[in-house]
Design a binder for these strands. Structure first.
Lengths: 245, 245, 245, 245
DNA sequence: AATGAATGAGTTTTCATTCAT
DNA sequence: CATGAATGAAAACTCATTCAT
């Protein structure tokens, strides 16, 4: 999707759509603009896609499919593998790690996964922006951002994910912690990707600086993805510390 | 804007616009839809507003003015007042509180202010949603969300704010800490307001439960608004703690 | 619909549509042509009508309503009145006239009605042509020509018609006689109206000559509308006569 | 044209066109629909036919050629043969039969011919429907239905037919009788073929029943094809009879 | 003989906006 | 204040046709 060479017309149309939809919104983009940007005729767009909306659907599906694949990969490589190795147990109420090494290993993997997710979101930040734009409207893609944000992908069609998702629910995540996770872990990373270009223009950070700054910020929140309750506890402690200073 | 009684036509038009813009986006909303929803004729809309965009401008200005007023109020009541009282000093590199009581007072005020902001954002979450929708496009309201998010209001036209804004920059906030603040403090609260209705529908929380859960989550992050560096330090500590468990 | 003075725009649109649809068919007519012929802008057409098809629907409904009204009028003035006067009885198996005068009266009324129908069809022959064109396609107006042809109008929505229609079924019309009636009474008169202009151009008849010639031809078939069986009997006789000449 | 086996592409295209043109009209049918129905690509259609209109022309010519052939066959077998046999004379003002046996023979032949025509029209009723659809518009096939209806075929290009056609004009058919013939003989049989499927669906007749019912009805009208004046005379008689009953 | 890709020139429809009253 | 009627400009979409292979 990022090739700029002599791409096939269909891909050029998709690319142009990503650019324009993410800049001007779906409704704000004219099919003729897409045609011009993709250097094809309007009619050809309708040769490849049933309608303007069909283009959007393709983009949404593309992102969703990728996200799903990546999530499944993580689950497989980490959760499932550690369970097989006997280093991790999914108890009714929590993940149980056999030893500190297991915890450390898991945390490192989460960290790696987090960075992979971040890079993925950054790579497709334009589509993500379209996604966000649409999720804010009550369009049919309304709920899909939530799904994506939960990193669960298209869970309805995917049995494995369903199982893990169920497991995650057993995770003793209280609804309150889910609120925390959603608004203080997922929203920031999505926002980071979506506002990346705007923020960069405003701050004059280099790509690397910005990415590093964000990752550093994220580390503050990290542990909570595993054990939010601990964070809350620690933090109460924190507040006391601060106030006793 | 929230009266449902026998409102005047002009207000009904604004109300209908808020609803529709926030549901379908600016471009996705037809003037005729606004007319229908407001129970007026299209022509009357053009009697009260110069153009469709003029309606949007009014809404944006309304939110911005309110936000500005609220921010200035906070600055006055806390920062300025504490400086006058000699309890707070703005040094070239940081805020300096004279004693623990001052810190505690400040933190409490921040907390109160935060809740006020939250309620404000929740009250006008529909307009905020429009704001967000527009900020994601490269419309002329593009940059305004950033300004709003920074609680700086319409800084160009406001000398006092300018001064304070400048002061804030001296705040010894490293650019890295601004990244943290933006993505882990501002984004969450804005997202919370914007996705409030969607999240509630999904989670079946009551208004109170959801608000409380979010405020509780926020407390984790709070201190960092004052002293982000400390949080970062504490957090490194946290990680060590976790791994030594 | 036939005024040529300073008509209202809506009527001019309908008139232009009748002309064009009947000349070029519905599919063969462009909305822009209607606009030009009606001397209005394309946009105004969409101000008055939901779509191109909506125009067609209006025309169809117009003809149907008129036909229904005329049929009901006939039924009232003749059938119902004669029943009230005790001159006509609807028996399970046939119409029973009390005396020859009643038959003669009825036949005269049928004749008058027939001419009224003919003039009506001639007046609206352009709409009828559209009707026929559409009934030949499997459009949604497919079945409506049959209804119109049966002079029963929109029988579903009309209780009185329903009753009479039911009476007509009791009329001892064998299915075979209905075939005769449809193809040798209804088809000719409808065809006459629909092909009127073409036939006239080809034959150089004056309006009066053509109309008279057709009415004269019709008289041959007439009795059969009342008592088809008789005609069939007589006709067998006829054939014998002819062959014995 | 009715084979369903492994037809050649060209025939499948023609078949599909017949189906679609007769269902949706020429203008209402898309080339892509024909392609789909014929299970060929659009491009192949343009390999076999010059244009969409070229397909229609082929169908029209096909029907016309057949009708011409059939008419010529009849003329040859009956008129010409009877003239040769000295049983029939074409006088300047009328057909003259030598004896009753000749009349009887001619009438029988007309009857047989009529049934042949009926079966022919029924067989190609779909093309006939297209024909009728086009004749109602002012397309270039406008006048061809008249020609077909007159059983004259494509008279311009056919010298023999021209002669016969001329003879027919000498036939002492008054213009009034032509009106009768056209609207009460030709229109019914054409309508019967064209509305055959619709009528059948509506009436639940079997093929045989419907055909028989129509032929029976036709017998009433028959003589008039030979000697309309007699029918008219007889009919006046008929009316008197009825009224004296 | 066959086709996937491509298109010019239209088509229907939409929409923000204006205007006479 | 209020509105029904009107519209220019442009939007989405269509379609018969062509062309390179």
């Amino acid at each position: 999707m990022l090739k700029t060479e002599q791409q096939q017309a269909r891909e050029r149309i998709l690319d142009a759509s990503v650019q324009l939809f993410s800049q001007k919104g779906y409704d704000g983009t004219r099919v003729s603009e897409i045609a011009e940007a993709a250097n094809v005729t309007k009619a050809l767009i309708y040769y490849y896609f049933k309608s303007k909306e069909d283009i959007l659907d393709h983009l949404v599906r593309f992102l969703l499919d990728n996200a799903t694949a990546m999530t499944m990969d993580f689950i497989h490589t980490n959760i499932v593998q550690m369970i097989k190795d006997g280093r991790l147990d999914i108890l009714p109420d929590r993940l149980h790690f056999n030893d500190n090494a297991a915890i450390r290993c898991f945390l490192e993997n989460v960290q790696v996964y987090f960075e992979k997710v971040l890079d993925y979101l950054l790579q497709y930040r334009h589509i993500l922006r379209i996604f966000m734009l649409e999720s804010l409207k009550d369009s049919k893609h309304n709920t899909k951002l939530f799904r994506l944000m939960d990193f669960f992908g298209d869970s309805e069609k995917n049995l494995l994910l369903k199982t893990i998702s169920a497991a995650d629910q057993d995770f003793n995540y209280t609804p309150e912690l889910l609120v925390f996770k959603f608004f203080y872990a997922i929203c920031p990373i999505v926002s980071f990707a979506v506002y990346y270009d705007d923020y960069q223009k405003m701050s004059n950070f280099s790509d690397d600086q910005l990415r590093t700054a964000f990752l550093q910020s994220s580390r503050i929140i990290f542990g909570s993805l595993v054990s939010g309750q601990d964070i809350l506890l620690k933090n109460n402690q924190l507040e006391k510390d601060l106030s006793h200073r």
